[in-house]
Nucleic acid binder design. Structure first.
Length: 407
RNA sequence: GGACAGGUGGCCGAGUGGUUAAAGGCAGCAGACUGUAAAUCUGCCCGCGCAAGCGUACGCUAGUUCGAAUCUAGCCCUGUCCA
């Protein structure tokens, strides 16, 4: 359908919309007033990773279209764990750890959203503030009466778990009730009218909408984004080294830049639309590039995403390093580095020390397989020694490069 | 509380006394081909050691045995059914 509100038009043309609970209703609302909308985030780690970036960008779009982003930190629900898609119950975190995580995660939102007291300024809330107050009996009375177990059992998050004969605790089973309550609470206390989230959150969002309608007679809306996978079928944001973290201190900017630079050809256009502010006509031009020319589009993607998440300077430095290292065959200053003692260093120790191999055995296998290079030359002798005294370029495979600097 | 089934390497999943550091698959790493892409083919894939080898590992603990992932007992956890 064609939307009249700038919000839905923007979201639609950049590929954020998977499902809407009431497209017409929301379109009308968004065309006529500032719509506060929220997305919930977990506080299980000190940083969010690339898998959450669609949601963060969605809040950014909301603000760009003149509405109000509400970042909901799951300080309360993190103490429970969302059963969705997980085979195992989540570990419980201490209150202090959760608070510290929220503070750390806040820094990434500060880069991508404008916070403040104005009508379209972003705000951050923590559901521990209201869920923590709730008494069990009170919750059962107020909220429990609006849920039937029959229906709860039919939700994918529960059903799949049962079908796979994976355990699900009562604690987790309650997650959806608390999630639904969040929406109703935010609708009442902050005038929130929209909840967004990944497609796996559909059931939770619908629950919240119904609960809000039943308890308060208030009409609220839901929107989900498509499940993002890479073109080769993998999950977004996972690499060998682990998750691609958004926070500066969780992953070096150069590695973050490289993650985007190595995007599959087929994903370039999609990622540019979702993760950058590059205008659509420019994206259309970039994704039409054929053959190796598409690499130029990948550089734009890497630069833009890094700029948004890590800042202008970090993006420029990462690009300069990549350019010097790959195109120039030289050394960029942002590469991982290791001190090289005057007496030199064994190749094995150098590979382990700089982080290209997790153990000495792995380093030896890398060497034996022909993947270790010193100053661009493959070295296949496990006992090779690197002499000290001058700067050395150390590589593992074609993509991982580092510098050994005389100490 | 009872009966039955099950708990194996990052994941899935074989393995029922020695030749098992444990088949196979996925994921991952490297090589070839390329464009820092994909697909494909090849090699690698617990740790330490130059090596012979040593250490650690099949839910936990104690046993049987020359020898246990494999047998026994107790315990913990999960599922299904019964109460």
């Amino acid at each position: 359908m064609t939307y009249t509100s700038s919000l839905l038009r923007l979201l639609d043309e950049r590929g954020y919309i998977h499902q809407l609970t009431d497209a017409e209703g929301l379109d009308k609302l968004a065309a006529g007033q500032v719509v506060p909308g929220y997305i919930g985030f977990d506080a299980t780690a000190p940083s969010l990773h690339v898998g959450s970036l669609v949601q963060i960008m969605l809040l950014r779009r909301l603000q760009q279209a003149g509405h109000k982003p509400v970042v909901l930190m799951g300080g309360g629900t993190t103490r429970i764990g969302d059963p969705t898609g997980r085979d195992e119950s989540r570990k419980m975190l201490s209150d202090e750890a959760i608070e510290a995580n929220i503070a750390s995660i806040r820094t990434i939102f500060a880069r991508l959203l404008h916070f403040g007291d104005g009508p379209t300024d972003a705000i951050m809330v923590n559901n521990h503030d209201w869920l923590g107050q709730l008494g069990y009996i009170e919750l059962l009375q107020k909220v429990g009466t609006h849920f039937t177990v029959n229906r709860m059992l039919s939700f994918d998050s529960v059903r799949l778990r049962l079908e796979r004969e994976q355990p699900m605790t009562f604690l987790e089973f309650n997650y959806m009730i608390l999630q639904g309550y969040d929406f109703r609470h935010l609708a009442r206390s902050a005038g929130v009218r929209l909840q967004m989230g990944g497609s796996d959150q559909w059931g939770n969002i619908v629950n919240g909408i119904e609960l809000t309608r039943r308890m308060d007679g208030q009409e609220v809306y839901g929107l989900t984004t498509p499940l993002l996978t890479t073109a080769d079928g993998g999950k977004m944001g996972k690499t060998a080294a682990g998750a691609v973290w958004l926070n500066d201190d969780a992953l070096p900017a150069y590695d973050f830049w490289q993650y985007w630079r190595n995007t599959d050809d087929r994903d370039v256009g999609k990622f540019l639309r979702l993760f950058t502010d590059v205008p659509l006509d420019e994206i259309a031009r970039l994704e039409a590039l054929g053959g190796s020319e598409i690499n130029a589009a990948k550089v734009v993607l890497a630069n833009e995403v890094t700029r948004l998440c890590r800042g202008e300077a970090a993006a420029a430095a990462a690009e300069a390093t990549a350019s010097a290292t790959f195109a120039g065959g030289g050394l960029g200053q942002d590469l991982p580095a290791l001190a090289l003692p005057a007496a030199g260093l064994s190749l094995v120790d150098a590979l382990v020390g700089i982080g290209f191999a997790a153990s000495r055995g792995e380093a030896k296998r890398l060497i034996a397989g022909g993947g270790a290079k010193v100053d661009g030359e493959a070295v296949t002798d496990e006992t090779a020694h690197i002499v000290g005294g001058s700067e050395v370029r150390l590589s593992a495979g074609k993509k991982k490069h580092g510098i050994l600097r005389p100490a």
